[in-house]
Amino acid sequence: MEGKGIMMHQKITVNEARPYAYSSGLEQTALVVIDMQNDFCSPGGFGELLGNDITPARAIIPVIQTVLEAARAAGMMVVHTREGHLPDLSDCPPTKLARSRAQGAGIGDEGPMGRILVRGERGHAIVPELAPLPGELVIDKPGKGAFYETALQEALAARGITSLVVCGVTTHVCVHTTIREANDRGYECLLLEDASAAFDPGDHEAAVRMIWQQGAIFGWTATAAAFQSALERSAAAAGGRA
């Protein structure tokens, strides 16, 4: 592991990003893994109960595993988010509750993995392959966006973070909402295309395009491999200087 003094000067440059190269300071960049919970990625969870095919969500688990390892090795800040509600559902808007019930999977109802989308239940937990390490920030959020009614912005500010590398589920809902919120707050966002998924591949593709269109209107997109090789180049350059 590199010392902090070296990291200060390390830059990450992802040349193969859309619409053009993405660049950020390693120490100012956080990896944000969105909602990789059983409720969205595991059989019997909320996503599947709503009638979705969870195959795309499961397929990205090994990709995110590799990204997590690379980010941890580089000493990047790692943030995990979880969507879910208090057991008494006092933080669940009536609109959201009514719609989930109309779909046959009411938030708070008993499901195969405990009460649906309720904090502390098995469905709410992050999938074991991607379990947060001690010391990594876990943000519990009541909505789709990770900034609304959470301490995420304060936590990022405290670490001097200005850039976010984002992955997880689902691309067009929670990942997109979070990137939109982050972009309005001035963060530079890079979406890892193949480390994100939607239940419908069409939604995923459309959501990716919306990020980088109009000259990166919400940010950049790249593959997980492109990001990892950028981290390797960054570490090699720092090693050369040291």
């Binding site: 709503l50 067009h172 809902v173 459309a206 959501a207 919306m210």
Partner: peptide, 19 residues
């Protein structure tokens, strides 16, 4: 600015029972 984005954005609203 792009008709595909227009259609996709509206479609996203209607997913999952009106997400």
């Amino acid at each position: 600015t792009d008709i595909d984005n227009h259609v996709a954005a509206l479609n996203m609203v209607t997913m999952q029972g009106g997400v």
